[in-house]
Computed example of a mutant assay.
Amino acid sequence: MRLSQANNNKIEVSMAPMIDAVFLLLIFFLVATMMKKEDKDIEITPPESISAIKKPADDKAVVVGISQTGEFFYEGRPASVNLLHQELRDLSASEPDRQIRLDADAQAPFNSVVQVMDICQFRGLQNVVIRTYDEKYNRK
C-alpha cells in the first residue's frame, strides 16, 4: 500500500498564540485605563430623606464632610474653616461650576452645615448637593 506524500506539507496557522495575545492586550488596556479613585468619604451616618432627588454620583465632585462632632473635612482630610475658605476660593476661581457634595452626619450640628453652605454661597459656588441616605450607595 502506497501513501501519497504530495499534500502532507500544508501550512497551518495556530490560533492559540493569537488568542493569548488578544487576551494580554485586553488585560493591558483594562489595567492601563483603570485609575484608582481617591477615597474622599468619611465615616458618617447620612440623614434620611424621602423627598431627595436621586442623581448619579459625580466622581469629580469636591467632597466637604462634617462629622458628628462638627469637625470639617475637605476631600477626606481634616480641615479648618480657614482651609475651607481657601480651598473653596481657589475652586471658585478655577472651576465655578464644579459640583460640591456636602457629606454631613445626621447628628452633625446644624450650624456647621449652614456655615459650609454660607462659605459656598460667599464664594459663588452654586452647584452644592447634600448627600442623604441611599440603600444602594450606603450598603456595606
Rank of each mutant, 00 (worst) to 15 (best):
M15T: 12
M15Q: 07
A16P: 05
P17F: 04
I19M: 08
I19D: 10
I19R: 10
I19P: 11
D20T: 15
D20P: 14
D20Y: 15
L24Q: 07
L24A: 14
F28Y: 07
F28N: 01
F29W: 04
L30M: 08
V31W: 03
V31I: 13
T33L: 13
T33S: 13
M34Q: 13
M34L: 12
M34P: 04
M34F: 12
K36C: 04
D39E: 05
D39R: 06
D41L: 12
E43C: 03
I44Q: 02
I44C: 03
T45F: 10
P46D: 02
P47R: 07
P47M: 05
E48D: 13
E48H: 11
S49K: 05
S49H: 06
S49P: 08
I50M: 11
I50H: 15
A52T: 03
I53T: 15
I53R: 11
I53A: 12
I53N: 14
K55P: 01
A57V: 09
D59P: 12
K60V: 09
V62N: 00
V62S: 00
V64I: 14
G65F: 00
G65E: 00
I66C: 07
I66W: 02
I66Y: 00
I66Q: 02
T69V: 14
T69E: 15
T69P: 05
E71L: 03
E71R: 09
E71I: 02
F72P: 04
F72N: 04
E75Y: 00
E75W: 00
G76P: 04
A79E: 02
V81E: 11
N82K: 13
N82G: 15
L83W: 06
L84T: 01
L84V: 01
H85V: 09
Q86A: 10
E87N: 12
L88F: 00
L88D: 05
D90V: 08
D90H: 07
D90C: 08
L91S: 03
L91K: 01
A93V: 15
S94C: 09
E95L: 12
D97E: 09
R98C: 05
Q99P: 02
Q99C: 02
I100R: 01
L102F: 05
D103I: 06
A104V: 06
D105H: 07
